Simulated assay, not measured.
Amino acid sequence: MANPADRIAVSTWSLHRMLGTTYPHNLDSQAIGPVQETYGEGSESLLDIPSAIANRGINRLELVSFHLPSHDPIYLGELRDALATAEVTLQTLLIDAGDISDPATSARDTDWVWRWIETANALGAERARVIAGKQKPTRDALDLSVKALTTLSERNAGSSVRLTTENWFDLLAEPAQVHYLLDKLDGRIGLNGDFGNWGGPSKYDDLRAIFGRAETCHAKGSFTDGKLDEADYGQCLQAAEEAGYKGPYTLIFDADAPSEWDGIEIEREFILEVLSN
């Protein structure tokens, strides 16, 4: 990705008000739930999104699982065609539910996640991101997550879809847990680093500690009254770049103001300016 513009992606989460509808997850069922107007009626369907972002010069997309209305092969084929027509790469299917670190739910949720990994394969995604777990980071919880992620990687053997996880929830709340998990998995699972999941006085040092292992990044900016916190965003980018991160930056925007496209464009322009210096 020598061209900085090629390092820009966007998530459907950043367009959730435009999409409006979501499809709830039921971890006791492999079925996708009935449509809900979670963020209003919406003005675009998911099938419209590839061309919408391509028209704005972005050619990499991440898809949140609750934005997908169906596992049906015909619909998945339509979405794959829409991506191909727009020349947009499906960078990651973000599997946004499940707790494989909980003994009470690990087996069930591992099977549920696997159904979504199959969908990532059907869509031709580059990656599928799995939540490592939501339990407190005890050794038992971490090892249970390692076991489940190993099972998923073995089921996915031979696929071109790379499985990743993220520095998210209690299980991976600090660099030490991220490194423990990834070391145990020995390359079978990659890392998506997220700017917005960690905070506190050690935030930038903590991000710097893991971004050398990151393959993708959720570049979430903080907005107040429509204004980007450039100091925070800049330090997050600096931490990632100093750690040797070379992958794409996925624009994550969820503030009330400005509009979704305006917020995405502000983040993109800021990142491209940093990368060009």
Rank of each mutant, 00 (worst) to 15 (best):
A120T: 02
A120P: 03
A120G: 03
A120V: 00
N121S: 02
A122M: 14
L123H: 09
G124R: 04
G124T: 01
A125D: 10
A125Q: 01
E126V: 00
R127T: 04
R129D: 07
V130P: 01
V130M: 08
V130D: 03
I131K: 04
I131R: 13
I131A: 04
A132C: 06
K134M: 15
Q135K: 15
Q135D: 11
P137E: 11
D140F: 09
L142E: 07
D143A: 03
V146N: 00
K147I: 03
A148E: 13
L149F: 05
T150M: 08
L152K: 02
L152C: 04
S153P: 07
E154H: 00
E154R: 09
R155A: 01
N156R: 09
N156P: 09
S159I: 07
S160P: 00
S160I: 09
S160A: 15
S160R: 14
V161M: 04
L163P: 03
T164G: 01
E166R: 01
W168A: 10
W168L: 14
W168T: 08
F169L: 15
D170V: 12
L171T: 03
L172P: 07
L172F: 05
E174Y: 02
P175C: 12
P175H: 11
Q177K: 04
V178T: 10
V178C: 10
H179F: 10
D183Y: 01
D183H: 03
